[in-house]
């Protein structure tokens, strides 16, 4: 009985944490591994937002997206270069938090195409905004940051939307394939 209470208070199970860690690693490495020859700002959002949405859609628990963003950000600090340095993790945390918000507002329906598209677009836009804030904090001249900002914002949103849509396709495919996603075992335990 006490074991059941302990498990119900636990936000993430071991399985959840393993899955989140794997997706976080995938996000951190996505820029280096999935090299897309589209030389436009925000194009990394295609893979990034897709992986993020799938990860959040697989682990359907509050704060899973934020955890995913935080862990991938920590990994990215070690893997990805750039002037942001230790502040780089903020750029990864923001989209994860947005995914949590999207899941909350949609009732955990991230696999819905409209939800996925809008979530990906907002999440990638949040990444851009966070990047701008970090750059301002590092003393980058405002004029330089504003250069090409219009196009950058537009492409970030477009590629984020595309990534979100791709994520919904993967999530839907997983559900149709009856993949053993987290939570299915919990339902089996309740039936016993």
């Amino acid at each position: 009985m006490s074991g059941t209470r302990a498990r119900s208070r636990q936000l993430f199970t071991t399985q959840d944490l393993v899955i989140l860690a794997l997706f976080a690693a995938l996000i951190a490495l996505s820029k280096a591994v999935f090299r897309i020859p589209i030389h436009v700002p925000g194009h990394s959002g295609i893979m990034w937002m897709a992986i993020l949405l799938v990860g959040r859609g697989v682990v359907r628990k509050p704060w899973a997206g934020t955890m995913l963003g935080l862990v991938s950000g920590i990994l990215a600090v070690a893997v990805v270069g750039g002037r942001e340095g230790l502040l780089l993790w903020m750029k990864y945390l923001a989209p994860g938090a947005i995914m949590d918000l999207a899941a909350l507002l949609s009732g955990e329906r991230l696999s819905h195409p409209i939800v996925g598209i809008l979530s990906g677009a907002v999440a990638n836009a949040a990444k851009l905004v966070t990047s701008l804030i970090v750059s301002l904090a590092l003393g980058i001249p405002t004029g330089y940051l504003a250069l090409g900002l219009g196009l950058s914002a537009t492409t970030h949103i477009v590629f984020g939307a595309l990534g979100g849509w791709l994520g919904t396709l993967v999530l839907e495919a997983l559900r149709r394939a009856r993949a053993p996603l987290p939570g299915t075992y919990a339902r089996e335990e309740k039936l016993r």
């Binding site: 504003a146 090409g148 900002l149």
Partner: peptide, 8 residues
């Protein structure tokens, strides 16, 4: 998007 273009 509008704010970004305006800022630019």
């Amino acid at each position: 998007i509008a704010a970004a273009w305006g800022t630019q």
